[in-house]
């Protein structure tokens, strides 16, 4: 079952310069009752995006028409807390294809890679610079080349290499699926079970 591919992206960005944004903020628990993966984008950052009255909160960045794009530029320690993959589904469903930060929580990072949402880690210094640039000029574009693992801020030419597990990179570039891969390893898995007498 092929997955969403990611190879190259050039886009404007949406800045979200808060530290420690946890998955409860990304998608509050009361929206986790669905049994499919679709539609979570409507409730992305729900309690920041909407006022108690149900109206849009015009102070929140996603409601500011000046900012748009496929790249979310987040603050340090993004995605901590609950393991809910719904957080990644919500970000992806909303239309983002990459999240940039100086630091991601582990499970969030894994979940992103498993859903075609690319987490890009850059230095804190560059992250703050990028956030300022976008605030000043919302038309600021960035370029992400996964093959070369290069992240570029187009107007300034700042260009850095970002890390990614080579296996995960391959999966994203080719749209490969982990489960297909694991299923192809079945004989190895049963061999291991027999060896250790794991299936009684």
């Amino acid at each position: 079952m092929p997955k969403v591919k990611f190879d190259f992206l050039e886009s404007t960005c949406v800045p979200l310069p808060f530290e420690n944004v946890d998955t409860d903020q990304i998608i509050p628990a009361r929206f986790l009752s669905a049994t499919s993966r679709e539609g979570f984008g409507n409730n992305l950052f729900r309690d920041w995006r909407y006022l108690k009255t149900g109206e849009k909160n015009s102070d929140f960045i996603l409601n500011n028409p000046k900012f748009s794009g496929k790249v979310l530029v987040a603050g340090k320690n993004f995605g901590s807390g609950s393991s809910r993959e719904h957080a990644v589904w919500a970000i992806f469903d909303y239309g983002f294809r990459a999240v940039v930060s100086s630091f991601f929580a582990d499970i969030f990072m894994n979940n992103s890679l498993n859903n075609g949402l690319l987490p890009v880690v850059i230095s804190e210094e560059l992250l703050i610079k990028l956030q300022c640039l976008i605030q000043k000029n919302p038309a600021t574009k960035v370029k992400i080349d996964l093959e070369k693992q290069i992240f570029t801020i187009i107007p300034t030419g700042d260009s850095v290499r970002f890390g990614i597990n080579p296996y995960k990179k391959e999966c994203l570039l080719k749209g490969l699926d982990d489960i297909d891969f694991l299923l192809s390893m079945k004989s190895l898995i049963t061999g291991y079970e027999n060896n250790k007498n794991l299936v009684k």
Binding site: S83, R84, E85, H86, V88, I107, N110, N111, N114, N115, N165, Y167, D178, I179, F181, L182, L183, M185, K186, I189, E193
Partner: peptide
């Protein structure tokens, strides 16, 4: 350790997950 739903599917399908 905690995992995401894609990994839950991996475990159901193969009793294994991929972990760095």
């Amino acid at each position: 350790f905690g995992i995401g739903t894609s990994e839950v599917e991996m475990v159901l399908a193969t009793q294994c997950i991929l972990q760095p």
